[in-house]
Every structure is written in structure tokens, then in C-alpha cells.
Design a protein around this nucleic acid. Sequence first.
RNA 1: GCGCCAGUAGCUCAGUUGGACAGAGCAUCAGCCUUCUAAGCUGAGGGCCACAGGUUCGAAUCCUGUCUGGCGUACCA
Length: 547
Amino acid sequence: MKHQIVIEIFSEGLKKLAVSDLSLLQFETPNNPEHGDLSTNIAMKLAKQLKKKPLDIANELIQILSFDSRQIHSIKAINPGFINIKFTKQYFLDCFKELAQKGTEIGRLNIGKNKKVNIEFLSANPTGLLHLGHGRNAAIGDTIANILQWCGYQVTREYYFNNAGNQMNNLAKSIYARHRQLLGEQDFPFPEDGYFGDYIKDIAQNIIEKHKDRFKENTAENLNEIRKIGEKYCFDKIIATSKHLGVHHDVYFNEDSLYSSGETQDTIKALKEKGLIYEKDGASWLSYTKLGMKEDRVIIKSSGEPTYRLPDIAYHLNKLKRGFDIIIDVLGSDHIASAPDVIRAVEALAYDSSKIKILFYQFVTLTEAGEQVKMSKRSGKSYTLDELLEEVGADVVRFFLLMRASTTHLEFDLALAKEQSEKNPVFYLQYAHARICSILANAQEKGMEIDSKPDYSNLQTKEELALIKEILNFEDKIELAASKLETNIVTEYLRNLAALFHQFYHNCRIIDADAQLFQARINLALTTKNILFNGLKILGISAPEKM
RNA sequence: GCGCCAGUAGCUCAGUUGGACAGAGCAUCAGCCUUCUAAGCUGAGGGCCACAGGUUCGAAUCCUGUCUGGCGUACCA
């Protein structure tokens, strides 16, 4: 809650103290409830400037504040200079009443003001199947997109891929080798740095079933056909897995289009015009030292092929030219070092790099009963994302991937994920939702009508009030999640909300309360349900009505 | 070596951008179902916030150094 009235009261008071700079004025919710509902440290911050003791300033300030005692119960100054504000119960009830009226639209914001956001995530090349690391990328990207949409941004979800180059040739060679092996030459050599996963054998098997030995000859043409088949197989699987995880993209952007459109050429040209390109050892170098960085980097290899930097820079220019106000890249921590290469180059070409935000996430480790499970693509002994989704379900996978801050390593506990019981945190939220649905169904069955404008002053218990206060925080939490691009703010909030609901449920009867109280409580439950539903929807997790 | 991220209860993690006695889940122990879903609730124990300095009214949070783990340090992407 923004508590606008408090800001106004204090702004007035500070003016009377001849303090004009209001930027220091901040409020926070104390973690100790004895310190009230809201507190400010403004007196401490003004101490130096006014050359007075903080507590004296605080006392002076609260003397001249004027406020409505129907809304504010008390404003007190306390050692060493905090000012604590306590609202009346009526104030919270009024705020709640207003918020509850939003119904199923509760929590929706318009801070985005239709600004255009491009969020690029997943972006796995079609050389293999997705694993848990991709899952974290996809879950974060999709959920951040949901949050921003919910906040009124116009969001485009983009997938950037490369279906040319070394990696793809490697895929083709790997499939080719397996297919020769399957055709009877068991000792046909497998490329040393090839893809060892079982899916390569599946692709080879498919080829033989469909085409027999048509591609047996080791020709460039056949290898190209095999490459195409492999690419399609991988892409189909990737998209199917994404869908299973509840993830979709609006735009699939092929790196190759940057070459055919001439954008990579334009980029090189522009960099040359800025005097940032020079030749050395047969390669073209980008002079990052001129841009304040430590080392220059190759941008076109001596073979004539560009390094990843060129298309990456061109791609970001492309996104900027498409008119997005905010461009978000969701990247694994292994890209941290190379990201500035793109940013600096974009700046050098006089584009606004502040529009680009890079969301890095740390790696995922998969553990089972304390033991780490390998999931590398190369070893072949990997746990694919698909297998995981099959085994524990999309809701659990998504929740586990979203419940940690992106800056921390995520430990995915397979044993806990498999647990279909109260130990599993995702069920806790869903259970609260299902419980409320059940109460609503019972009330309906008994023919009880719900009055959407009840008298909330019937709500008296501490459980009711605690639940109401947390409900009032929903919009702030969504806004915070949107500004920090962190999904765990939402999961944490919903967990806490669910806990407060369960406590309310245990201490306050709803259906057998008397008529007035029933109306107030059923509306409180209904509003909680709306938030749980919207929150879970933002997370891309189902909100079951029965469990 | 250098850069980035992390180090908080036995385990997994929060910690409101510097606030007032450091929180939650799991695990452990003790309670609560003839009443709207017990996938729930109540209570207990468990901490030198890696370590050492510094900045200030005030530090888990900011600065410096040390230690530990992860990632990176390409004419791979």
C-alpha cells in the first residue's frame, strides 16, 4: 500500500519545518508490530542538516502534524528518532473494501503505460533437448513476461536461434555416425566432440525408418539433409517441452536473417566509421580498449566468419530499431563476462543502451537425496526437462524454478519435487485456493447469497486483520517484482498469504457465523482467492478448485 | 592470476535497496480432526549472518582485505 495520506501529512509538516527536499522522506513497514504499521527515519536523516538531535526533530515534527483520527490512531516519536505511525482498524477496513471491489482484476496495474517490452529467453539452438538449466531460463523469462503484462506493459516474447554454423554441423555429423552404426557398421567412428545423447540415436533411427539407407553416402548434400532433419526434430521437441512447461514465444528470430538482411554488414560498416575496427593477424578486431574496456576482441575471424559478437550486436540494434522501450535478455551466468561486449558496442553506435536490461540467473543443480545428479547434454546421461516434467508435473517444476532469487544457485531437490504431500511447497498455495473454492461451493449449495458490499466492521480478530493487511500488500509486491525482475518476490508473497489464510480459516468459522459476519468473512475469503488465482496465473501455475 | 555471483538455523533459502530484539520451509520434539478440505493449525528447540578490519546515530545489508564454492577469462556461442 502506498498510504498516500501519510506522505501528504508528513510533506505538510516538513514544509512547516522549512525542509524543502522531500526526497529523504521514506516509509517502511517495521518488522516488529509494536512499532506500528509504518515508520519513517526522516528525523535521523535531517539531523545533520538541521544540526539537532534526531529525537528532538522527531518530537518537533509530530507536534505540528495534523491528521484525521478516524484514519490514524497515533504518531509517536521514539528513541533514537524513529517516528512510528499506527493506523486505525477502520482505515485498514476502508482500504480493503476499496481493493476488494476490484474482484477478479485485483492487483492489476498500469505502471507499464503500454510501453513496449521485448523479452528474449530460452533461445536454445536446435542441437539438443532442453535440460533443467533451460527450464530455469524459460520459467523466469515467461514469468517476468507475465508480470510485466500484468503491470500494463506491451510484451513481446522472443526466441533467438542459430541454425547454421559449427554446432549444427556437429549435430549432423553425430546423427550421421549413429545412422551408419545403426545400418550395421557398429564401429563407425563417432565424432570426438559430438553429441552423445540418446536422442541422436532416436533421430538416426527415425531416418532409417523413413528413408532406409538413402543418406548413407558421406556427401555434403546428405549431411545437409540430415542436418535439417535433426534441426526439425530438436526444434519440435523444444517447442513441445516449452508448451508442457506453459511457455510460449511470439517471435522466433533466426540469426541468419541478420546476414541476409545486411544488418551484420551495416553494423560492421558503422563500427568502421567510428574508427573502432582494425586488422591484425588476418582478423578484424573491435577496439574495445577505445571504449574503456580491457582488451580488444575479434569480431571477424581470419576465416572470414564473424564471431558471435557481430550478430549479437546487430541483433540488439535490430531490437532497438523495432522501437522497444525496454529490452530484456534472460541469460545464464556463463554469459556475464561477454554481455558488456554487446552493450559497449551498442553505446558506441550512439544507441540508448540503458533500454537493455540483462537478467542473469545462476546455475541449477539437480539433487536427489543429497546426491548431485548430472545433467550435461554431452555426457548423454542427462535428465531432460521433459522427463522431469513427466515425472513431477509442470506446476511443481515451475514453482521450484521460480521460488529462488535469480542471483542464487538453485538446488532442485528431486526427492522433494516428487513428494506429493504437504512437504511440497507448491501444494500449500494450491491447497489454500482449493479450500476457499470448497467453502464457496458449500455456501452456494446452502443457498447463501454473497453480498458484495458487506459491513466489514464485523471483522475483529487478529487473524482477520493480519490477512487484510497482507492482501493490501499485493499490488506493491507485484510492482516490486516488476522493477527488480525477480519472480521469487511473488512466490514468497503468495506463500505468506496462504499461511495467513490458513490461520484465519482455523480460527474463524465462515459458513456458520451469523449473517453479518458471514458476509464479511466470505468476502475476505473470496478476495484472498482472487489474489491466489491471479498470483498463480502470473507464475504460470494452475489453481485447482479441488485437491 | 583477473572478472562476475554467492557464503545467514542440521538442510534449502527469505531478509522491504542502511533501521529498532535476524525470518520461513524441511528435518527433530510435543500437541490439535463427531464442526466449512489435517496437502491444515498450535507450540518448543536450533544463529559469532564465512572471517578480520572500516564507514555512522545504526551494518546480514555499504567499503577494504582474507578464506570457501560456482561461472567465466577464445579467431566457441
